[in-house]
Amino acid sequence: MTQTLPREWAHRAPAQRAILWLGWFALVALFVWCWQIMSQDTIWAFVWDAPDQALDIGGRMMPPKWGYLPQLMKPLWDTLNIATLGTIGGVIIAIPVAFLAARNTTPSTTFLRPIALFIIVTSRSINSLIWALLLVAIIGPGLLAGILAIALRSIGFVGKLLYEAIEETDARQIEAITATGAGPAQVLTYGIVPQILPAFWSISVFRWDINIRESAILGLVGAGGLGLKMNASLAILAWDQVVVILLLILATVVLSEWVSAQVRKAII
């Protein structure tokens, strides 16, 4: 038990410390390098000019043009519809995808599961605005493009969370239903669905909340709603209208967040 105590106390072993320092050093070097590449084309005169620009824009925003508000009611209604209908559409497609992607419910792990996972990843990696950009180019501007964009983005989000919920179900409850001689569809509706229903509702409402935010700006690329008005106001540099739109979006987002929190509380 008699050990010679080390002369100095150190937080970490020397090798470990070296690796840690090397890691930090690499990060700093990488940062500097990236910074240089990124800013090589930056026109610094514009950057130094920015505070003046900000003051200028700020000045033009005041006073907000409140008279613009009534004209925004129809686009607001459109925005809500894009979010709601898009969420419903996305959820309807996400349900079968989730069941195909979950290890314990997929009919084939070698063929269908990878396809379902690929659908989820694709939908998740592409922002709804990019979906909207594509859809506006393909089927033309309007609400439909917005709804489809929101739906396509929601598939991945809802699909991923839902299939994780399916995989986390209690296997014993499913086993018990199987043991009664129930068919596959009955095992699904009695053994699995009741277990994932609360998760399903809370995921859907959560996504609806996110979609309200996203649908507000989809109009910037022509997919309808408040964003269209914003685009139009920006084009004519009507900053006093832009600020009204922004405040309206903010109010809607806060309200939808509250609604979604209330609904989720009621479910759980």
Partner: peptide, 24 residues
């Protein structure tokens, strides 16, 4: 948190000019 990235980007592009600096 409540301002969409895209909206912030619109303002910053207006202030700092086009290019990755505004994005950064």
């Amino acid at each position: 948190r409540s301002l969409q990235e895209l909206i912030v980007a619109i303002f910053l592009v207006a202030m700092f000019g086009f290019g990755p600096f505004a994005g950064f």
